[in-house]
Design a protein around this nucleic acid. Structure first.
Length: 577
RNA sequence: GCGCCCGUAGCUCAGAGGACAGAGCAACGGACUUCUAAUCCGUUGGCCGCAGGUUCGACUCCUGCCGGGCGUGCCA
């Protein structure tokens, strides 16, 4: 029972007074710009036009017609607006009892009986896992957690980039300059070194590119030598990636990468041919999408090697057969927007009704101040370096601020990792971001540590008030009588905290609907900020009697929402830091 | 050239067609014998890129322009 239901009640009430359905009214209800203007407002301009009366007159009439007690709150009209105020005791009782009652399950919803498949992370084998891959990984992982909480069956797929021309390059480089012992020692860095070396040499010796294509072709034809080297590289890289995912707490249900679809490519091309979409041009095969306002797209190169769109088609078809998804999300950079337009259009032309359920969730580029990152030029930042430095930074701060803390490493990991994940989720994903060490390692202001700190402060208060095992859920018995008592939680900081607390579900839902975890991250910042204001103005432990009890209940609610919200973003909430 | 995306405070960014456009960072000034100062309070700071249009109402929608990014048949 959050504001969501209050909003529904308001919509229901209004629809009984005017000729509009609750579904039409709900989207018009807005959050007023100032706390004094209530919790929801209904602008009467739309009605003004229909009824040919000034909006402030309509607002006043409506306000007069609403009977007290028809909603758990009050109504006022201010100018052309109808302002609704939720009864504080109602909020207090319903909301806090629900949150504390459900604890770690608060925010979770019942099964939707729908499957949503999310394709995210997808690093390239034999290339280092750079900060560029971080975005897809954390955005996808957050969406995974959010949809799971909302009751969907979720399938997380890591569409590993384990195929393509770059393997030809690596095989050539390894055959020329490779050293097995170095490879064994630090596979990903060494393969990266070879990859960069290849591109450097290919500048002087362009025939290398020809050789690379030749080797990739051999790989496609399952040449024993080529496959052997490929499997070796692939295995070593996967081990490295999994180590990183474990460190970050990221999980997948499937690691079926590009190579998995190799034996389905012919049949996929055949499908395209059957629909009369396949054309030959200069020895290559392509689909002409001109009639749909899209450039033609290549499906097979003149040397017979398939291209990634063909593998994507095969993968989508396979995924539908396997999972019967209601949605398939691709968390992939915005630079591939055209690719996805072509890809989805092809699925539609092939006659798959579920083509509409395939959605590209794009995000902006990470770049340096002076230009873009480039693996082949050796201009990348290793994600692991970023994580290590962030954790180290967190450790330094903890040593300084909380020297007595017992498990410093654990807290430092949560904070450092949290800062990186949150930093990537907090802004609108479509925007490009500049990589800046200083910003990455700044833990003040709008960051995960800010939210985590608020959480830790609450844990500390609860521990002092209630004893050691304070932060397990559902261990305290707050009852309704307290909530119904008059005059509690009426300080502005307390009211604001209650209202913000009540908006959690709405923001969670928005984050899912628009595939934008940033809504949830922003919300957590708001909640943490409201808590910090409360913290500085409303003492808990020294408050008397039922006020202390009420405040404990309030902050327990805040603690749960902060904890659950961070968890949905893939961030831990330590009890001390 | 064409297509897509972005343009809001010095910097980084929020902003759900609606009420006087908000944070963080930076700068300056305050608050730790009081629940962790990774915090809080205050001050300074805006032709919401420009010009039109739609609307009772536009930072938000449409058109054009300017600036930046990305893409544009044999990479992914």
């Amino acid at each position: 029972m959050g504001l969501l239901t209050f909003k529904e009640e308001v919509a229901g009430l209004l629809s009984s007074l005017i000729a509009m359905s609750p579904a039409e009214i709900a989207p018009l209800l807005e959050i007023p710009p100032e706390p004094g203007m209530g919790d929801y407002a209904f602008p009467c301009f739309v009605l003004a036009r229909r009824q040919k009366k000034p909006p402030h007159v309509i607002a006043a009439e409506l306000a007069a017609r609403i009977e007290p007690g028809s909603i758990p709150g009050t109504v006022q009209n201010r100018g052309p607006y109808l302002n609704f105020y939720i009864d504080r005791p109602y909020l207090f009782e319903k909301l806090l009892l629900e949150i504390t009652g459900r604890g770690i399950d608060y925010g979770k919803e019942k099964g939707q009986n729908k499957t949503i498949v999310i394709d995210y992370s997808a690093p390239n084998i034999a290339k280092p896992f750079g900060v560029g891959h971080l975005r897809s990984t954390v955005i996808g992982s957050a969406l995974y957690r959010i949809y799971r909480a909302l009751g969907y069956r979720v399938v997380g797929i890591n569409h590993i980039g384990d195929w393509g021309t770059q393997f030809g390059k690596l095989i050539v480089a390894f055959r020329r300059w490779g050293d097995s012992s170095q490879l064994q020692k630090d596979p990903v860095h060494y393969l990266y070194h070879l990859y960069v070396q290849f591109h450097r040499e290919a500048e002087k010796e362009p025939e290398l590119n020809e050789e690379a294509r030749y080797w990739f072709r051999k790989l496609e034809l399952e040449d024993e030598d080529a496959v052997g080297i490929w499997e070796h590289f692939r295995g070593l890289s996967l081990i490295e990636f999994q180590r990183l995912y474990r460190l970050m707490g990221i999980e997948f249900d499937s690691y079926q990468g590009e190579s998995f679809y190799n034996n389905m490519l012919e049949e996929t091309l055949e499908l395209v041919r059957e629909k009369g979409l396949l054309k030959e041009s200069e020895g290559a095969l392509l689909a002409d999408l001109e009639p749909y306002g899209l450039p033609p797209c290549l499906l097979r190169k003149k040397d017979g090697a398939a291209l990634y769109i063909t593998r994507d088609l095969a993968a989508a078809i396979y995924r539908y057969k396997t999972y019967r998804f209601s949605k398939l999300l691709y968390v992939v950079g915005a630079e591939q927007t055209l690719h996805f337009k072509q890809f989805f259009k092809l699925l539609e032309l092939l006659g798959f009704p579920w083509a509409d359920d395939c959605i590209h969730v794009p995000f902006g580029l990470i770049h340096f101040k002076d230009g873009r990152m480039s693996t082949r030029e050796g201009k990348v930042i290793f994600l692991e370096d970023v994580i290590n430095r962030a954790i180290e930074m967190a450790q330094n701060i903890i040593r300084e601020k909380n020297p007595g803390l017992e498990n410093k490493e654990k807290a430092a990991k949560a904070v450092g990792l949290g800062a990186i994940i949150f930093g990537d989720l907090v802004n609108d994903r479509i925007k490009d971001v500049e990589f800046d060490w200083e910003k990455v390692l700044d833990f003040s202001g709008e960051t995960a540590p800010y939210v985590q700190y608020a959480h830790a402060r609450i844990c500390s208060i609860l521990k002092k008030a209630l004893g050691e095992s304070a932060t397990g859920s559902g261990e305290r018995h707050f009852d309704g009588a307290l909530a119904r008592a008059e005059g509690l939680l009426e300080a502005p900081e307390e009211e604001q905290l209650l209202i913000t607390l009540a908006r959690f579900k709405e923001q969670l839902r928005r984050a899912a609907e628009e595939y934008r975890p940033s809504f949830l991250a922003r919300y957590l910042l708001d909640l943490a900020r409201d808590f910090n204001k409360f913290y500085h103005n409303c003492p808990v432990l020294t408050a008397g009697g039922s006020l202390k009890e009420a405040r404990l209940l309030l902050i327990e609610g805040v603690r749960i929402v902060l904890h659950n919200g961070l968890e949905l973003l893939g961030i831990e909430a330590p009890e001390e830091m």
